[in-house]
């Protein structure tokens, strides 16, 4: 990988200009200090114990030079940083609005036409997008490295962020503000579609899930959903305990609930746990799971059930 990450938004190249300028200035000063330090340490190394040294206590012109020159450079960096920042904070009027909710530990996106997605943000190539973001629980931070944008989500207020995607493809979303146990699993993708593909997606057909995906066997589709819709942030498939119970070997066995009752883990229990998670909470876990009602279709729930069955 190169040292500068992929450039995929209108803001990225502006930020990179600043990053490169600071890097160059830093290198100049770093090399200057290092060379002088090493040169002096070698050249003036003590050769005899009784060496005489000159009595030099300072040099005013030098003090002025090395105060004034860095000050001027610092002001330039400040202004440059501010100018790009101003751009980042001023969304164009025609930007398409998407409402973002970040909660422990997944992202949901609500679009103008009533569509709703989890952990996948669909946007159109070269069309500005403004995200209006909120968090119901704790702080989160929406971060897309390829776009060079980041903004915290703060309970009790809306925050916003905008960008114009300039590259078709799929880019990582990270949660950058520590939000608890599942923080490092609070990942998503921005999917930048061509105008044609976006139009198809807008009308309801999932652009990335064409005929190929629909024909997947249910268990494989379930595995795909498990990874893409954020189930994996809280539920492992190898028996390790994360935020929620592991899926490994649960199907067909009885589980003890918080109220001491015992429930058999079957198709109905799994479906209920997805749609109405607080109905029966397994003993030892917190009632924190969000409902996936209206987010996952019946077919997708069925596929998840099929997948869980395979985890012996």
């Amino acid at each position: 990988m190169t040292w500068i990450p992929e450039v995929a938004s209108n803001l990225a190249s502006k930020v990179d200009g600043l990053l490169i300028l600071i890097t160059l200035l830093s290198l100049v000063f770093f090399i200057l200090i290092t060379v002088v330090l090493v040169y002096f340490a070698i050249k003036y190394r003590r050769k005899r114990e009784d060496e005489e040294t000159p009595y030099i206590t300072g040099n005013e012109p030098l003090e002025i030079i090395w105060t004034v020159i860095p000050s001027i450079l610092l002001i330039i960096l400040f202004v440059y940083g501010y100018v790009v920042f101003k751009d980042m904070r001023t969304p164009p009027e025609d930007a398409l609005e998407v409402t973002v909710e970040g909660k422990q530990w997944l992202w949901t996106f609500d679009y103008y036409n009533g569509k709703k997605t989890i952990n996948e943000l669909y946007v159109q190539h070269n069309r500005p997008v403004r995200l209006v973001m909120e968090a119901p629980d704790v702080l989160h931070s929406f971060f897309v490295p390829a776009f060079r944008v980041k903004q915290d989500l703060v309970p009790g207020r809306y925050t916003q962020l905008w960008f114009t995607p300039t590259k078709i493809g799929t880019f990582d979303i990270f949660c950058a503000e520590y939000c608890g146990t599942g923080h490092s699993a609070m990942l998503g993708k921005v999917i930048v579609l061509s105008p044609e593909a976006y139009e198809i997606w807008e009308k309801g057909v999932k652009a990335d899930e064409g005929a190929g995906v629909a024909s997947l066997p249910p268990a494989e589709l379930g595995e795909k959903i498990y990874k893409e819709k954020g189930c994996n942030a809280c539920h492992s498939v190898d028996g390790s305990v994360l935020v929620g119970p592991s899926f490994k070997g649960i199907f067909g066995h009885a589980a003890v609930m918080q109220d001491g009752s015992s429930v058999n883990v079957d198709e109905n229990y799994i479906k209920q746990s997805i749609i109405e998670p607080q109905a029966h909470v397994v003993k030892g876990f917190q009632p924190v799971m969000p409902s996936f009602k209206g987010i996952l279709s019946d077919e997708e729930v069925t596929a998840l059930v099929a997948y869980i069955k395979t985890l012996k």
Partner: peptide, 27 residues
């Protein structure tokens, strides 16, 4: 100290500059 602190100080410039910090913050 002088060598490493110089690196520490110079990399602070990246974080003081607004637009660069937006990208680098919390990384």
């Amino acid at each position: 100290f002088v060598f490493l602190f110089t690196i520490g100080g110079l990399t602070g410039l990246f974080l003081g500059a607004l637009a660069a910090d937006i990208h680098l913050h919390d990384t």
